[in-house]
Amino acid sequence: MFVEVAVPTAATGTAIPAGTAGAALVDGAVSRPRVSAVRPPLARRMLAAVPPYLYLLPGMISLALWTYKPIIEAVQLSFYRWNLLPTSPRIYVGLENYQRLFTIPQLRDAAMNTLWYVLGLVPFAIILPTAVALVVRDLSGRSRTVYRALLFLPVLVAPVAAAAVWRWLLDPSGLVNHALGLGAFNWLREESTALFSILMICAWQILGFAVLVISAGLTGISADYTEAAEMDGASRWQTTRWVTLPMLRSTLLFMLLMTVLLSAQWTFPLIDVLTQGGPVDSTTNVYYLLWEFGFRSLDSGLASAAGVVFFLAFAVVAAALVKLADHYSFADN
């Protein structure tokens, strides 16, 4: 039974049919005052409030056990020194893990690389896909479908398979060197090109997804606006710049948010399979560093401290971006 009665402030209009459909209405119609008719006895009201919680239960249990409890435990573990072995003791060390984290030289490299990954992916998650989506929009039905289908293909390639095929393409005796006539250059083992290579592989994988999302954002914009602008004598570029792009702002900000938050995740499997963070930490990122703390050095305290710090850092950036988005959408109206 659908019951809005659970909320005391529900309007009487909805409460009457929702309450206890037949019986309550009949009761109310006879003699009792209307108020008691829409407010059945407490026990019944409590029973009626239960269903939504029952439906939520499986999901809530899953979240509580596998997402929220681990976060609390991560915070706890960050104050202890422990090597993950059940037999060895956990030693309380206070803030020592955090102090150690900020003195580890690798942290700076990882943070800088993460920044480079984010900055490097912005053109491929936002700028180029916007251009492509604008061009695709103007094409006729058939070729539009074909282009989108082809651009989307890399999104579906499993990360390990993508890593494998690119390692083959970038191999010293692979096709890229062959085509560029570079001899036996090792893209993934050279400090100067390893990060760039990973960045390009990642860009190759996400471009199609970004085009799709931005295209969908474009179709949400009514053609009336652009037509009105053109009727007023605006050039094509002016229409795009001053009508289409501003209306696309929320989609673009969403893609920016995704890029900032997820770049470190997107590059993670590529780093693990292709370079393991090397050469000389030139490709590692913050999450890969955390992973190494936890499962290579078995330093659960340091890994947890890193997890807490990175999570908070990303949360702050995300909040700032959302705030920015809000600000702009207000300016819109």
Partner: peptide, 10 residues
């Protein structure tokens, strides 16, 4: 928003 790397150890 919660990266899996934060929850993975526990």
């Amino acid at each position: 928003l919660i990266p899996f790397q934060v929850t993975m150890i526990s």
